[in-house]
Design a protein around this nucleic acid. Structure first.
Lengths: 183, 183
DNA sequence: CGTCGCATGTAACCAGTTACATGATTAA
DNA sequence: TTAATCATGTAACTGGTTACATGCGACG
């Protein structure tokens, strides 16, 4: 299912965290390339999870900023998570505005198509570099074995995307060029 | 932006279609691996697009089922599409319940992890087979050049995902096995 | 002393899904 | 005659985003 509630529970199953830290896990951390969630959904989710006893607030520890609320998963919460995990995963959803744009390369200038592809190549390169950093030193949390597997999957897929764009970018630029030549 | 309205306009820019056929383009057709939309969003979108003159209903042609409404994009509609295309693409969004499940391989039985990965491998194989069919004969529509590029991108990425799972599936199963052995 | 990153929370809004209601056509 | 696919549409819901409101702490 993986609604925000379940995703938060998942993050907390790996380590205690505040709402702010959970969002970082979605944004830059180990969940970043297959999960998302804004504050506006995380904080209410946390409140609900606390309400049904899946998590508890662990009082701000040793001199941490007051007002910061660090959550910890309860045994009850672990059961809830296990329950979601027991049912078969929902299909992946991938939505790409980038690919949609490329579908209409004929209608756009070769320059803008090239810039768009070049930007994307730069983006993938940056992501891969960041991910490879993570592999070396333990950049975020304690990099469990399953984390390594998922990490490797992401690496392989982004690598393939990057390679494809680098090897074939001239083709899509040519498509645009040719279309404008015809017209 | 690629909301449903824009996506419908995109489909209609390639060829005239009914609401039903647009959904097929999202589900099985050339847009299937990076766009989606249910009837409940497509039909209202079409109504709106017709309202602002971006598309027109082309009366049901030569003996087609009465009640079927085939839409055609107007010059105005093409401008609207071009306008969306002119602004930089929004970031891709990928959400994977599957990867989320795998992150917690430690908490699940090796059997269920293995089944899940095996299912996913079968799924990717089926998708790749279907996509390769499309390349040979012109399975859906006239396979433009940019379509071929996007198609190739999808192929490369799914191929990479499949290869990774096949090459590394033993690792994630081992993670689960080991976790239960420890416990 | 200002501004950036940390930190929490709420309320309005919205895009899209689910479920429902309906019916024709085609193939077993 | 029954099931599957084609075909359109609406209404209720819901999950999540955006924008706002607020304030502390650290660094320069």
């Amino acid at each position: 299912m993986m609604d925000v509630k379940t995703a938060c529970l998942g993050v907390l199953a790996l380590s205690d965290a505040s709402g702010y830290e959970i969002r970082k896990a979605f944004e830059e951390g180990p969940f970043s390339h297959f999960a998302e969630g804004a504050f506006g959904s995380i904080y209410p989710a946390l409140k609900q999870l606390e309400g049904d006893g899946s998590i508890v607030v662990r009082g701000t520890n040793n001199g941490e900023r007051p007002g910061k609320k660090i959550y910890r998963i309860t045994p009850r919460g672990k059961l809830v998570l296990l329950d979601s995990l027991a049912q078969p995963p929902a299909p992946d959803r991938y939505k790409s505005d980038f690919l949609f744009h490329l579908m209409f390369a004929e209608f756009q200038s070769a320059a803008s198509i090239e810039a768009m592809v070049e930007d994307r190549i730069a983006l993938y390169r940056a992501m891969l570099a960041a991910m490879q950093d993570c592999s070396g030193s333990g950049c975020h949390g304690p990099l469990t074995n399953s984390h390594a597997f998922v990490h490797g999957f992401g690496l392989a897929v982004y690598r393939a995307a990057l390679d494809y764009l680098e090897d074939h970018k001239h083709e899509i630029v040519a498509v645009s060029l040719q279309a404008h030549h015809d017209a």
